Structure formats: C-alpha cells, structure tokens
Amino acid sequence: MKNYLIIFVISLSFTAFTHAQKIDTEKVFGGYKYTYNNELISIGDLASIIETNTDAYKLIKKGRTNRSLSGVLGFVGGGLIGWPIGTSLGGGEVNWTLAGIGAGLIAVAIPISTRSNKKINQAVELYNASINPTSSTTFKPEFKIIANGRGFGLAMNF
C-alpha cells in the first residue's frame, strides 16, 4: 500500500510542476497587453520569459527593435507637427513644411509599428506552442477503487 501511495504522490507532483504557464495576449487601444500568471508584463519581461525558446526570442528581438524605431519616428514626427501648430496658436509665422515632414515620419512609423506588433505576437504564439499545453490537457488519469481478496486499493490508469 505504501508503494502505491508513493507512486500516486510522485505522479501528481510531476504533473503539477511540469505545467508551464501560457502568455496571454489582449488587443487594447494603441497596441497589445501581455499577461503571464495573471500579471501584466512589459515587453522586456516578455523577452526574458521567451528567452528559452531561441526562435521566438529572435522574433521578439526584431519586434522590439522595430518598436523602438517606430516610437522614435512617431515622437519626432509628432514634435514636427506640434511645433508649427504651437507657433500658429502663438501668432507667429508658421512653417508648414515641418508639419508635412512630421506627417511623413508618422506615416512611416505606423507600418513599422504594425510589423513590430506582428513579430511580437508571432513570438508569443511560438512560445505558447512550444510549452505544449495540449500534453497537460490530454493527461486525464482515471482513478478506480478496487477490492479483492487482499483488501481495498486505489488504481490510476493513464
């Protein structure tokens, strides 16, 4: 009876500790929100979690680089648009060429940002596929109480 109990405890602990957590993605206004263990995580934390999967890590590095580039282009473009608007509101002479250049920079930043989000989401999907959540959901042991001439027992079939 002790042997069965030990085997039962070992099998339960094995299934409890081998279950890796999935990263959840949710689309929000202006981008995506990533959660791990029901906690909101940043892109940097996401990269450190995904680091164990080399293919997913390559994708997330590309996505982070594109995200930084689009952020810089969008910031500079917004500044170049805001400067003439502020000058106009202040009553000064407006240089609309700056606003046009700023609009062009923002127009370039938007597709780069979209590509960045796609790469990061592909990395998350690749990571989630690699942790193999189907193996833990298909593992459904059957427990039976058995009795024979020797006594009662618990049988586990998987």
Rank of each mutant, 00 (worst) to 15 (best):
M1Q: 07
Y4P: 03
L5A: 12
I6V: 14
I7F: 01
I10Y: 04
S11V: 14
S13N: 05
F14W: 11
T15R: 06
H19C: 04
H19W: 11
A20V: 01
K22N: 12
D24P: 00
T25K: 10
V28E: 06
F29E: 11
F29C: 01
G30S: 08
G30M: 03
G30P: 05
Y32H: 14
Y34T: 10
Y34E: 08
N37C: 01
I41Y: 01
G44S: 15
G44H: 11
L46T: 01
A47Q: 14
S48V: 10
S48Y: 07
S48N: 14
S48I: 07
I50V: 10
N53W: 07
A56V: 02
A56W: 07
A56E: 08
Y57P: 00
K58H: 14
L59Y: 10
K61D: 12
K62S: 12
K62D: 14
G63L: 04
G63W: 10
S68A: 12
S68V: 13
L69T: 15
S70Y: 12
S70R: 01
S70E: 05
V72G: 02
L73H: 08
L73I: 06
G74S: 11
F75E: 01
F75C: 00
V76A: 08
V76Y: 02
G77P: 06
G77D: 02
G79L: 13
G79A: 10
L80P: 06
L80S: 03
G82N: 03
G82H: 03
S88P: 04
S88G: 13
L89I: 13
L89A: 10
G90Q: 04
G90L: 09
G90R: 01
G90S: 10
G91A: 03
G91T: 03
N95P: 08
N95C: 02
W96Q: 09
L98R: 08
G100F: 09
A103E: 01
G104Q: 03
L105Y: 08
I106F: 06
A107N: 05
A109Q: 08
P111R: 02
S113D: 09
R115N: 15
K118V: 13
K119A: 13
I120R: 05
I120N: 02
N121E: 12
Q122F: 08
A123S: 14
E125P: 06
L126G: 09
Y127L: 02
Y127Q: 07
N128M: 11
A129P: 00
S130T: 11
N132K: 15
P133L: 14
P133I: 11
S135A: 14
T137S: 15
T137Q: 14
F139T: 09
P141F: 04
K144N: 13
I145T: 12
A147C: 05
N148Q: 06
G149Y: 06
G149L: 12
F152R: 09
G153K: 05
M156F: 06
F158G: 02
F158T: 11
F158I: 14
